[in-house]
């Protein structure tokens, strides 16, 4: 007798259906079971002839019985009619147009890897790169980028070798897809980084300033290089030019009007020696180089 290893089409179809129904089992377990079933089905087919499924019943029932007898877990969906949504999803998954979309799966494999890294970074409260907003700082931005690349490589590797329809894979993918919610929410609500400005900020100081330094006293000199005293200064709008900080010094020699009102725009400001009511050095002034003035004095009306 010549070896006849060719499997009749109806037997191979039946086996494929049984295999599909056992899709959630670990591959070694499933292969062991099918290695047992296949020769037995061929034996039965060659002996009894006739339709395999007519003799053995629907492949799904056969698989369920096999699984149960082998003491393997029975998936929940076998216990009752499948929810319509699941049936519709299966039908959709078999649609050729959807099958075509599966060619885009590698894009998802990269995306899920990124989502996982981003979600871990969010959970760990990591900061994010300012320049490349999508890169989390895992120590450094470079390490973050490296983690994303490593996760993407692992994800693609897994994507290439795991069966697509396995429940565990579908479930894991759904969980990863769910991670998109916190990650996208983070990008939506993140505060744009505030530019750190290092140049000095102009803050108006009260009173008189020169190059940003407060002026605390003014020493007027005549063109004959003589220090003037009690010179009243006014601005162009006629406001007295006061040095506000000095007004509160109790030792300040404050000029008063005949009616007793304080005059605070008299320069140079002088200070009494404590407890004396006397200015010790009325002619004291900073060392200044008064230039010789060549311009004739203004002709003033007498």
């Amino acid at each position: 007798m010549t070896p006849t290893t060719a499997v009749p089409p109806e037997v191979s179809e039946y086996l494929a259906a049984v295999r599909a129904a056992l899709d959630d089992l670990p591959s070694t377990e499933r292969d062991d079971l099918l290695a047992e079933v296949e020769p037995s089905l061929l034996d039965a087919a060659s002996e009894t002839g006739g339709n395999v499924s007519a003799r053995l019943g629907p492949a799904e029932d056969f698989a369920a019985e096999l699984r149960s007898a082998a003491g393997l877990q029975v998936p929940l969906r076998r216990t009752g009619p499948e929810p319509r949504l699941l049936v519709a999803a299966r039908r959709l998954a078999r649609d050729p147009r959807v099958q075509e979309l599966r060619r885009l799966a590698p894009i998802w494999w990269v995306a899920r890897a990124y989502l996982l890294v981003a979600a871990i970074a969010l959970a760990a409260g990591a900061s994010w790169s300012l320049r490349y907003f999508f890169v989390p700082h895992l120590g450094t931005a470079w390490l973050g980028l490296l983690a994303i690349a490593a996760a993407a490589a692992l994800s693609i590797w897994l994507g290439l070798r795991t069966p697509r329809a396995a429940h565990l894979v579908v479930g894991a993918n759904l969980v990863l897809l769910g991670l998109a919610i916190p990650v996208l929410s983070h990008f939506r609500h993140r505060q744009l980084p505030v530019q750190v400005v290092t140049e000095p900020i102009y803050q108006p100081t009260q009173g008189l300033t020169l190059d940003g330094v407060p002026v605390t006293n003014i020493y007027p000199f005549s063109r004959q290089r003589r220090l003037l005293h009690d010179v009243l200064l006014y601005t162009g709008s006629g406001a007295p030019l006061d040095v506000p900080g000095a007004a509160i010094d109790p030792q300040r020699r404050v000029l008063r009007t005949t009616s007793g009102k304080q005059v605070l725009n008299a320069y140079p400001i002088r200070y009494f020696d404590p407890g004396t009511g006397q200015v010790a050095h009325p002619g004291a002034a900073p060392k200044v180089q008064i230039p010789r003035i060549a311009t004739p004095p203004l002709p003033l009306a007498k």
Partner: peptide, 15 residues
Amino acid sequence: VGDASVYGTLRRLYR
């Protein structure tokens, strides 16, 4: 006795 029951049982006893 069902085919699948026997094959499944054999695998389980073997394991």
